[in-house]
Design a protein around this nucleic acid. Sequence first.
DNA 1: TATTGTTTTTGATACAAATCAACAATAGTC
DNA 2: GACTATTGTTGATTTGTATCAAAAACAATA
Lengths: 220, 220
Amino acid sequence: MPLGFTNQQMQKIDDVVKIRRRIKQGELLFGNGDTFTSLFAIRTGFFKTSVSTEDGREQVIGFQMAGEIIGLDGIVNDLHSCNAVALEDAEVCVMPFANIETLSREFPELQRHIHKIMSREIVRENSVMMLLGNMRAEERLAGFLLNLVQRLHARGFSQSEIILRMTREEIGSYLGMKLETVSRTFSKFSDEGMIEVKQRYVHIIKPDALKKIFNLQTCD
Amino acid sequence: MPLGFTNQQMQKIDDVVKIRRRIKQGELLFGNGDTFTSLFAIRTGFFKTSVSTEDGREQVIGFQMAGEIIGLDGIVNDLHSCNAVALEDAEVCVMPFANIETLSREFPELQRHIHKIMSREIVRENSVMMLLGNMRAEERLAGFLLNLVQRLHARGFSQSEIILRMTREEIGSYLGMKLETVSRTFSKFSDEGMIEVKQRYVHIIKPDALKKIFNLQTCD
DNA sequence: TATTGTTTTTGATACAAATCAACAATAGTC
DNA sequence: GACTATTGTTGATTTGTATCAAAAACAATA
């Protein structure tokens, strides 16, 4: 949340954010078709969001962690159009969107904040489209790992070690590849000494090598 | 624009929208790194938006037509992170975002409208991610054609005939495939009597067959 | 009308990733 | 601890799309 509010203002904002909800691992926070009333701010835990085709194929559209906002998809039609599943026990703030709108008419800083959150999500999805449309398996996985550590590091976790919260299949769905390819690519990075992998544990030994794969795959 | 405003309100809103700008075919409306000040409402013409990797690969992230809003990517960092190029001579309304924010604090309907526009873009990108991550060339092209006629039809154009504004290469970039594959897939649809193609002209003869390819590729 | 450049189509071949399959490692349960 | 289900790894093979290449269609310009 942005700073620069008076105590009275903070009180009003706190009121919007006071309802909490706990979600157990594997549970659905909201699903495709659910009526939309609230955005959710993740306090603790880890989520995946996904959409599905009629014939049952799932596309993971994002992995979200503490401090991130989910549910923005529901605003346009007052219905959610994706599923949000907790990948570990989680707690969220339930923020009724009507209240957010009212408050953000009162507080320009909050209004600006909401706009930035939505714009950030659009920009994020743009780069996922680049990843899915133009990159090869190694580039995708390198980009995925770099993005994940960067976000975890920003939250005070290690710069080089990750415990993955998702399966190979979920990573594959997000990256547009099959779980076997994810596994093989992990093994390849490991064989080349760039990372150390033991199931869900990943240690990034040569971040620069990953960066090189990610953004200049053609050179060198 | 939504209805339900008084004359005085409409006047204020009109003021935000009164600056026009003409963009010739091939010209850039805004580019990656440009400072963001305004959203653009397309009055006439057709745009593509795209992002690029350092090594020069381009990913088309959308094709936009009259009535659609572009520039939302710029809000988060006050910098544009994609390029918007006119694919035919175009005219846009330049809408300074600071004014939009001020006005939308005053008019809840406008505020709601802005939120819906951003949410709609997020939902659109979700379905593009599904397309890029999970679908095969035929499904992608079928989906692309159906989406395009649907949007054109909503604007009063034919339900079955399209003049494409973009090259095979641009379609391919959007759909995550090479121009040759786009061309071959067009030819395949044509051979099967589902569409008639002559360069940029496309006549959709069997929309149901395309729909079948698009959403139940595995069945049948 | 001829000329040049761009876009599109089509064919032959190569390759990255999918698929099919078997097994290993781990987690969860009785 | 044994047993089952889930998840992950690795190998062999297939396949869809990319790549390379050439020609055809079309657009722009002289």
